[in-house]
Amino acid sequence: MHRRTLILSSTAVCITALAAPLLTGASPGSAQTSSAQSTDPENTIDLDLKQGRVVIRLLPEVAPKTVERIKTLARQGFYDGTPFHRVIEGFMAQGGDPSGTGTGGSKLPDLPLEVSQRHFVRGVCGMARTSAPNSANSQFFIMFAPAPSLDGQYTIWGQVVRGMEYVDAIKRGSGSSGIVNDPDRIVHMRVAADVK
């Protein structure tokens, strides 16, 4: 099995720079981001962690196939209980693999890369994949800091609009691989329109 992950060969030299201030856009939680929060429950994800609820605005205009996949899997309960198996300080938290190994995914076909003009900044949600561009499936990551080297290389499907402090509290992994022993898990991941 192939590991679906961010390819660090091109980003490893940038990891120390990832803790720099945001290059573009407002930080999640700022007034600008708060006013831009999604009012469309069908395109909003409620991601419940043990620390609290993270609200993610989906970007169907940017990545329609990926957004549809995220919503389909969330509606199936696929993500519930899955770990954040790879978490790198100053970079990102990766989850969405039920096996917790980085090699798993859903039974659905892999997705094509959906490239956009958006940038990987703090709070952006992207899809993990193998070295093959069209291999994203269920695994995703949330950025702790900007990573311009990822722009145009991975699909961006969402943006955290509330609860980034809970993402920041996800247990970190060790070493450059960021593999986490006894990782934090997703409690529930739902499309907001389905939450009663």
Rank of each mutant, 00 (worst) to 15 (best):
G163R: 00
V121K: 08
M127E: 06
R185F: 09
E165R: 14
T5F: 07
L73R: 10
R4K: 14
H2R: 15
I170L: 05
P98N: 07
K65L: 10
R122F: 04
F144R: 05
T24Y: 15
S9I: 02
S106T: 13
N43L: 03
Q37S: 15
G95N: 01
F120Y: 13
T24V: 14
I156D: 12
P21K: 02
G96T: 02
D48A: 09
T103I: 11
L150K: 03
G102Q: 08
V115K: 13
L47H: 06
A74D: 12
A145P: 00
F140P: 02
S27M: 07
L23V: 06
Q139M: 07
S135M: 08
R118T: 04
A20L: 05
T33G: 06
A169K: 12
R3W: 15
P148S: 09
T66H: 14
E42L: 05
R162A: 14
R118I: 00
R3D: 06
V187H: 04
D151S: 11
A12C: 00
H85N: 06
I142D: 04
I56R: 00
A26V: 11
G152S: 13
F141I: 01
G102D: 09
P21A: 12
I70A: 03
R75T: 13
Q76G: 15
A36I: 00
S131L: 09
H188K: 12
Q37E: 14
N137V: 07
V115L: 08
T11Y: 10
F144K: 05
N134H: 15
K171T: 00
P133S: 01
A192L: 04
E61K: 11
R162K: 04
I70Q: 11
